[in-house]
Simulated scan of single mutants.
Amino acid sequence: MIYQFYKNEKALIDYSNKAALYALSKSRFLANMSHEIITPLNSIVGFSEQLTQVDLQAEQKEQVGAIRNSSVMLLDVVNDILDFSKYETGKVTLEQIPFSPYVAIHDVFDSMKIQAEKKKIGFHLNMEIDKDLYILGDPLRLKQVVMNLLSNAIKFTAEGKESLNAALQNLESNNTRLKVSISDTGLGINPVDQKIIFDEFAQVYYASTKEKQQGTGLGLAICKKIVEFQGGTIEVKSIERKDFTFTFELPYQITNKPVNQELPVSKLEIEAQVLAGKRVLLADDNMLNILLASTILRKYKVTFDAAYNGREALDLFYENNYDLVLTDIQMPEMGGIELTQKIRSCEDKSKNSISILGVTANVMQEDRKKYLASGMDELVLKLFLEQELLEKILKFIRK
């Protein structure tokens, strides 16, 4: 009997180790696969953004808009897969910064209003939160949950209305709970499907309407993982063919209003005027990525040299003086990490302290730590848009 206990325990340990290894391998595969998709998507989204700023004919604008919308939809699918992979393996880091829950929720609500208006359904917001009250947490994750739930509600509502209710509880202490409820008058689901609605890849098929839903079936699963990862709860109540109500609660700590706020786009463009005459070294084996980055830099009168692998970039670095290096992580002959290490080990102190921004589609936390540990100052994640790239460059370029 003792031998059987030992044998069973050993089998469980082996199975647990294999499961952990499988989860890590799957996470790695998804990250690499997503990187290969995001790299060309970076060019599609970036160039379509630049084309929207050009004086085009009406038909051409419509075509560019179609390209952009399709690529953004594809990007959403890739991001869903990446997000789920990160939460599944627990390799995710939550920010702890002061933010206004009123502003965060209002921003998402306003951005989703257009979709509701297109379907001609009511869209109501009831928020009993002081605009000047700030909490400590991750605003991006809160927005992600609210956006996923609102998008899901709009998708399943043909007529009627959507309602978003938000309130903070236990305000008499520093610790509070944010309660958000999103209701709709959509199709609803039966009690059996309610039990699996938060499972990954779960999609309800409505035979009566013959409606086939688009997407990965990961949206609600990601919401559940985000909420529970922060110590919160999420649930659904529904009456089939009548309504849905998703409710989630998240614990937060009340804090003071931050002093520094992000620059608005208009002010950012004014600040970007200091970039005129600066010199940047671009290193990327993808010619389209070089073309996109150079298109943005030219707008602000930044001069640049382009290298298509790390070794070419290193030679240019030794030959010339630059104000910033923008390098891809994965390149032939010499990658971004090795290039960064070579630059940091340069004997010329006036050159080895240059700011280095790494460009990558890999968002895994352990890889981010590895990239920054190599000597990079910050990462620029693909897909980057003009404003995002400018913000990073302005923060780190030599003044």
Rank of each mutant, 00 (worst) to 15 (best):
L125W: 02
N126S: 12
N126T: 07
N126F: 01
N126M: 03
N126D: 06
M127R: 03
I129S: 02
D130R: 04
D130M: 05
D130L: 05
K131L: 00
D132M: 01
D132F: 01
D132P: 00
L133C: 04
L133M: 06
Y134K: 01
Y134F: 10
Y134N: 01
I135P: 09
I135N: 08
L136P: 10
G137H: 08
G137P: 08
P139D: 02
P139V: 05
L140N: 05
L140S: 05
L140M: 01
R141C: 04
K143I: 03
K143L: 01
V145A: 06
V145R: 04
V146T: 15
V146M: 10
M147N: 15
N148C: 03
N148T: 06
N148Q: 10
N148R: 05
L149P: 13
L149R: 06
L150M: 12
S151Y: 05
S151R: 08
S151P: 03
A153F: 04
I154S: 15
I154L: 13
K155A: 14
K155H: 14
K155L: 11
F156N: 15
F156D: 13
F156M: 11
F156G: 05
T157F: 07
T157K: 07
E159T: 15
E159R: 14
E159Q: 14
K161Y: 08
E162Y: 09
E162S: 11
E162C: 15
S163W: 11
S163Y: 11
L164H: 11
N165S: 15
N165A: 13
A166Y: 14
A166S: 15
A167Y: 10
A167M: 10
A167G: 05
L168H: 13
L168S: 12
L168F: 13
Q169D: 14
Q169P: 01
Q169F: 08
L171M: 09
L171W: 00
